[in-house]
């Protein structure tokens, strides 16, 4: 068996308002592209099959699992990741709420939780508890448990509603 160079493509994207470009193998997933090619390691990969929610990003405005999207498929896309949530040193109300309400411990799932929660509040500014549970059921957490996450989202909704 001879080793051949994999087929590569240049992928250009906008991430959090900034343009990026890299040449990557055809099989590069979007989460690997963000982490290894662009150095944006805030987005985490855990299950790798689109189930756990750790790799949640916004792709052209839609909440998406970046572990089951190919980077080449995202060429030309507008992407938002956890790195773009805070405004400089000023945290987003969802981030503040997760801190104030104990919404995380180890933090591995947190970037995905924050992205999903933010996306929920953009679509439903004042979600009921069943709506929060239905939306967030695809974001798994193995340490904090879910009550604090639900509390965090309720608190964020309240803060954001007052602004």
């Amino acid at each position: 068996m001879t080793t051949t160079t994999p087929i590569k493509y240049t992928v250009k994207v906008t991430v959090n308002g900034k343009p990026y470009s890299a040449e990557v193998p055809s099989y590069r997933t979007l989460v690997d592209f963000l982490r290894y090619d662009l150095g944006l390691t805030g987005t985490k990969e855990t299950c790798s099959i689109g189930v756990c929610g750790a790799c949640t990003i916004m792709l052209d405005g839609a909440m998406t699992a970046s572990c089951i999207i190919l980077a080449v498929r995202a060429d030309g896309a507008d992407i938002q990741t956890i790195e773009g949530v805070a405004n400089g040193d000023e945290l987003h109300p969802v981030q503040e709420a997760f801190i104030a309400n104990g919404g995380f411990q180890c933090g591995a799932c947190t970037p995905g939780q924050i992205m999903a929660a933010k996306s929920l509040l953009e679509e439903i500014p004042h979600p009921t508890e069943p709506q929060i549970k239905e939306w967030m059921m695809g974001n798994l957490c193995r340490c904090t448990g879910y009550y604090q996450i639900i509390d965090s989202i309720k608190a964020a909704a309240e803060t954001m509603g007052k602004r």
Partner: peptide, 9 residues
């Protein structure tokens, strides 16, 4: 079907 994240795509 699955979650919002999957159904979005």
């Amino acid at each position: 079907v699955a979650t919002v994240r999957i159904r979005n795509v």
